[in-house]
Design a binder for these strands. Structure first.
Lengths: 351, 351
DNA sequence: TCAAAATATGTAAGCGATTACATTTGAATA
DNA sequence: TATTCAAATGTAATCGCTTACATATTTTGA
């Protein structure tokens, strides 16, 4: 049983002994202090290389109160979202010599517990949180009290001295409705992603406003609530098509539900887009390969991740008093494909 | 500039002072030692709760040589794979009070550097590596020298005292060919995933053997190399269909390439499955929703992740001398849908 | 050449925990 | 009540590193 780091950890003392200097000097070399004679520096560096010495992170963290580690919290749900964003974050952080500690939380109580452990345990220097279900008024207060830099992705907490990164869901959704309207649709249905989700709420808001602006039908029967899964999109569509008069277009709050909607249309022997136009949101990778290819809104998830990482790094060496409250909004672009029935801008998918 | 943990970190001394005991006693309470009088224990616990004390992880790591952290290395590539597996790992580890430090590496040199930093830096207690491109003979030696427990996912390094978890790609691929053969196909083409990938090589091996067993055509023109992307599947299919006589079935080494193949068939005005049967491997979530729904092999990625986490945890408190070399092979199941043209087992996709 | 100034290096305390060992406490026994 | 001994608690060293301060060395200038 038990075991320490297993093999011999080389420590700074080993290096000092071998190089015939004190640990202080080794430390100065490691930290690129300028007050070391170059001949000494070379000797120490040679030993460091020879022994393959890497400073112990725990000792560093204990002493410096910095761990070069960033915490990343995300909900269990959307694997695709998560995977893409984390890829963006990861790339940028590792290029800047920082590590990522991850954890997923189902609810806010769990989230608070995790963040609490990370921060008070001295594990992390900064925090990136993805929690679309949070909304300022449900008591999500604790993490904000900590004085490490924080970046919130897609949630509407108005966190002072933190950075919030949001997608411009509202305008993209409104413009999508306008696009459908220009194609002649009057009865444009919407499959909601669920009240508890920030992105979903914003997309819905864009839909409602777009519908009004275009003077399309404002029938509440044209709105059904799904939960971002294919099967909910399928069910929602069956529901919507019972409505009289039937909708001629369906706008799903994400691509997965749009795929379910297409499947449902097929089950109902409706042709997409001629009988029923269907559009989504996200531009997942398969959207371009489906039949018909899905008209949707492109969401640059990796870029989102990179922006989050950049924002965090910027604040990592900043005293909390100097930090500002920032909100970054990412504009979104439509990708017009076949499923909306528009022929005007059919981009040839470049294989 | 600068900043420590920001707000007051409560330390064990704060607790000791407040509870009027020594830090040793607080430590004993924290570690559930039985030699603390219950009245003292209660008093200390009350203070711990009152001050919201959480032990500093760096101090713990320095002292105990254990960080309750597991390193997770994966290649940059396959987001879907990664996301699913990590979800499985994450769930199991967090239930068992362990954190995950992630990093992605493009090549093995980078990988070695990262692992080296993690291990010698004292950051992690164990390691899970996903690196399908590794193969025992290309000098991937260094991580194996460390004495922390290791789990390798989908790679064929024969690591002593480590656990390797593999998918039963070979048999699943062979059986898929047999299935196509039973449907009457003689010219079964294969889109390879690339020589550098373990899963791809195994699937190819299964294809070759299946083809021979079924006495299907053994024409090298029926084999094209792709790279696991949709577009490579598209290109590969255009290539394959130039072959005379044309293949009547295409087996793609993963679903993404199968999707590209279907797209290509569509471009060539071929109907799937009547003109050309197409099958994939992975069972990605959209496979069931495509048109036609994709016949494929289901790969239980989350379970794979959980198994990896379990295997690692099991070894975490085991001395390296007591560790055994283990190999876990996960059997795979086919999912027969429409794209292969089989009507015998069409499972109704349950919405 | 020698003192003063400037620069390089060493010494030792401390970061926040654990733990071997020493000491105190209190219950049991005579 | 005094004595003994086990149980409870405290003291201080330690983990690997940084850094203020002390000391040693080199450089500079007269």
């Amino acid at each position: 049983m038990s075991s320490n780091y297993g093999n011999q950890m080389t420590t700074i003392s080993d290096v000092a002994r071998e190089a015939k200097v004190s640990t202080a000097t080794v430390s100065r070399v490691l930290n690129k202090s300028d007050k070391v004679r170059s001949i000494t520096r070379d000797r120490v560096n040679a030993v460091i290389r020879k022994l393959n010495f890497i400073p112990n992170v725990n000792a560093l963290g204990l002493q410096r109160k910095k761990t070069k580690t960033v915490g990343l919290i995300f909900p269990d749900a959307s694997a695709y979202y998560f995977a893409e964003i984390i890829q963006g974050i990861n790339r940028h952080l590792s290029q800047n010599d920082h590590q990522i500690l991850i954890s997923s939380a189902h609810d806010e109580a769990e989230e608070i517990k995790i963040v609490n452990g990370f921060v008070k345990g001295g594990r992390i220097d900064g925090l990136i949180m993805m929690m679309p279900s949070a909304n300022g008024n449900n008591g999500f207060k604790i993490p904000l009290a900590y004085e490490i830099p924080e970046v919130f992705i897609s949630c509407e907490i108005n966190a002072p001295r933190a950075t919030t990164i949001l997608l411009d869901n509202y305008n993209a959704a409104r413009e999508m409705v306008e696009h459908l309207s220009r194609l002649g649709h009057k009865r444009i249905a919407f499959i909601h992603g669920g009240e508890h989700n920030y992105d979903a709420r914003e997309r819905y808001r864009g839909y409602v406003d777009g519908r009004r602006i275009c003077q399309a039908d404002e029938d509440v029967n044209l709105e059904v609530v799904g939960n971002f899964t294919e099967s909910s999109g399928f069910q929602a569509t069956l529901e919507l098509m019972k409505c009289k008069p039937q909708p001629t277009a369906i706008f799903a709050a994400n691509d997965a539900m749009a795929i379910g909607a297409i499947e449902a249309a097929r089950a109902l022997k409706l042709r997409v887009p001629s009988d029923l136009a269907i559009v989504g949101f996200d531009d997942i990778s398969s959207a371009a390969y489906m039949d018909p290819a899905l008209t949707t809104v492109h969401v640059p998830l990796r870029r989102l991740g990179r922006l989050a990482a950049e924002a965090l790094l910027k604040n990592l060496n900043t005293d909390s008093a100097e930090r500002t409250t920032e909100k970054i909004i990412i504009p979104l672009q439509h990708v017009i494909r076949r499923s909306c029935g528009s022929e005007q801008t059919v981009k040839s998918e470049s294989f």
